[in-house]
Amino acid sequence: MTPPKPHGTLTVCITGGAGQISYSLLPLIASGEVFGHEQPIELRLLDIKPALEALNGVVMELHDCSFPLLRGIVATDDPMVAFRHADVAVLAGSFPRRPGMERRELLAKNVNIFKAHGHALDQVASKNVKIVVVGNPSNTNALVLSHFAPSIPKGNITALTRLDHNRTVSQVALRTGVSVNDVDGVAIWGNHSATQYPDMTRATAKGELAMPMLGGRKVVAEEIIPCIQKRGAAVLKARGFSSAMSAANAIGDHLRSWLMGDSKIVSMAVASDGSYHVKAGVYFSFPVRCVGGGEYEIVQGIELGEFSRKYVSATTEELFAEREEALSLL
């Protein structure tokens, strides 16, 4: 595969640079697992001032790994420094939801963060920068970012639903007794939240329709879909920390598919354009085809039956409600 920037160094910025997701993601990027083993990398790590000491420890470890592709590291609490000439930006940093916090309060905290990031990216990043928003609520944070970065094409801004996609692939594989490589046809629709729709109606396992092997629609609706929708909460309860390793892996998959191309249909939250009756104005997860070079297309022509439509309607309704709340805070 051709590296994203074959005649230069790829500048990759990661926010929340001292966080757990970044800690798992950085070795994947610096080792060449994401952008290829011929692509030199410069890392820009952004975090808040109280985290700078921990961030410096991360920098020490990156140096100690002696990654051959790593050409430089900048650690900072200044978005204007972090995003300067960025070719790729992974926005993993956000304000976490705390006990008793209302959704509007969470949105208000994150609107301010992504407003500042949007302004900085708009001013100093590469105009062809590719952005994946990870920090939750990621779909609506992507919308806010886009609003404040008007010179960056909406198609260059995405939100992460590849983790949900990977979870769905894994559940199908586990329950049908095949390798994840033998699973195809799953998709994530809508919001990266408990209303997301992990669609297995067209999933195949070794070329055979998976739905009968999964126990039919009743089992999928009552057991498997809730398992995927609530997986993050289950991981948090089990280990006392949110999903970091699997999130980092999914970010790597998302970026590799988007920039390098992918033979399989994958899931990404992208700017809605009226496809599947989802009006423009939100970042919505669709099944997409990544053709490489940072280009994707929403897969068209999928028949959404009654079973699927109720899920897609619910997650669409939630996203537009979030949109109105977020816009009222701008």
Rank of each mutant, 00 (worst) to 15 (best):
L10H: 07
G19C: 11
Y23M: 00
Y23P: 00
L28H: 12
E38S: 12
E38P: 00
L45G: 04
D47L: 03
G57S: 04
V59C: 10
P68I: 07
R71H: 10
P79F: 08
V81W: 07
V90G: 08
P99A: 07
M101S: 07
M101R: 00
E102Y: 03
N110A: 13
H117S: 12
V129Q: 08
V134Q: 12
N136E: 13
S138E: 07
T140V: 15
A142L: 13
A142D: 08
H147I: 12
A149E: 03
P150Y: 10
S151Q: 09
I152N: 07
G155F: 05
T158W: 04
D164F: 14
D164A: 14
T168G: 09
V169Q: 00
S170M: 12
Q171G: 01
V183R: 03
V186G: 10
W189F: 15
M213P: 00
R217F: 14
V220M: 12
I228N: 06
A233H: 12
S242T: 13
L255Q: 08
K264N: 11
S272C: 09
S272M: 02
V278W: 03
K279Y: 03
K279R: 10
A280N: 07
F286R: 00
Y296V: 07
G301C: 11
G305Q: 02
S308P: 00
R309K: 14
K310F: 06
Y311Q: 01
A321W: 06
R323S: 12
E324R: 05
L327I: 14
S328H: 06
